[in-house]
């Protein structure tokens, strides 16, 4: 019997009023797998990601994470969300707290750790992203790359089963992108299942197991990075890849 997938989303539809953003999307993610989602803006990539932890409510479909039905009214959503770490384009760190405070808040309030336990776990999460020495800094005192790494630490401290990255490097100055990608690569090597929405094609090429191309609310094509980047089967995929590689 095959191992249970970490994420199993089936037939996801999402309407925003009259706007049909997701038109029946399936996403199944195996243990230790990294799925990389590309596509033009407005194709529904971010919405798909946000449906997985129910920041957006899917209009229909099913989402299972680690065997837990995320859409079931009986599911303790706040508890289930600890299994799904999320990293945002704009970091969204709490500006009134230190880096350590950002990382430990949910450990204390949701996971029920004591302050001492939370601080120890928070410190080790910050160490994993290379920021052990910045624990006492507030977000305003950190660079964009450091802020995003704190945001990653905040998510991984809860020991999620899967990490969702929503354009994690798009808001960063080019010279700061590398440090964030390095942390993501580390995470990948440790076996974390990940769904990454991003334009970092270089990262996709050497870290992704699977690349999904989305357009107009559908997954148009998916395959290995080599397939998608070198010999896409669909015309729309080819056009998109061509456009990106011109830059």
């Amino acid at each position: 019997m095959a191992a249970r997938p970490v994420v199993e989303a089936r037939g996801i539809h999402k309407h925003f009023g009259a706007h049909h953003v997701l038109k029946g999307v399936d996403l199944v993610l195996a243990e230790r797998e990294l799925a990389f989602v590309i596509g033009p803006s407005g194709s529904g990539k971010s919405t798909l990601l946000r449906c997985l932890n129910r920041l957006e409510e899917p209009s229909s479909g099913s989402v299972m994470v680690d065997g837990v039905d995320m859409l079931d009214a009986r599911t303790d959503l706040n508890h289930a969300r600890q299994r799904v770490g999320m990293v945002f384009q704009s970091f969204n760190l709490y500006p009134h707290m230190t880096a350590l405070g950002n990382v430990t808040l949910a450990l204390r309030k949701v996971a029920g750790k004591s302050s001492a336990e939370a601080d120890a776990l928070g410190q080790s999460a910050l160490a994993r992203v290379g920021l052990a020495d910045r624990a006492g800094h507030t977000p305003g005192q950190l660079s964009g790359g450091q802020q995003q790494r704190v945001a990653i630490a905040r998510a991984i401290a809860l020991e999620p089963r899967v990490m969702l990255f929503d354009e994690p490097t798009s808001a960063l100055d080019p010279e700061l992108v590398g440090s964030v990608l390095a942390v993501m690569r580390d995470l990948r090597q440790s076996g974390m299942a990940m769904v990454v929405v991003s334009h970092e094609m270089g990262f996709a090429r050497n870290a992704a197991d699977r690349v999904l191309f989305m357009d107009q609310g559908l997954i148009v094509e998916e395959g290995t990075p080599a397939q998608i980047f070198e010999s896409p089967a669909q015309e729309r995929t080819r056009a998109f890849i061509g456009q990106i590689q011109k830059h």
């Binding site: 920041l55 706040n78 508890h79 969300r81 999320m86 945002f88 969204n92 808040l105 949910a106 945001a151």
Partner: peptide, 15 residues
């Protein structure tokens, strides 16, 4: 307060 603050907190399981 930006929506992202709510989303970040809710995504970590805070009520």
């Amino acid at each position: 307060i930006p929506k992202g603050q709510w989303e970040a907190a809710r995504s970590t399981g805070l009520s």
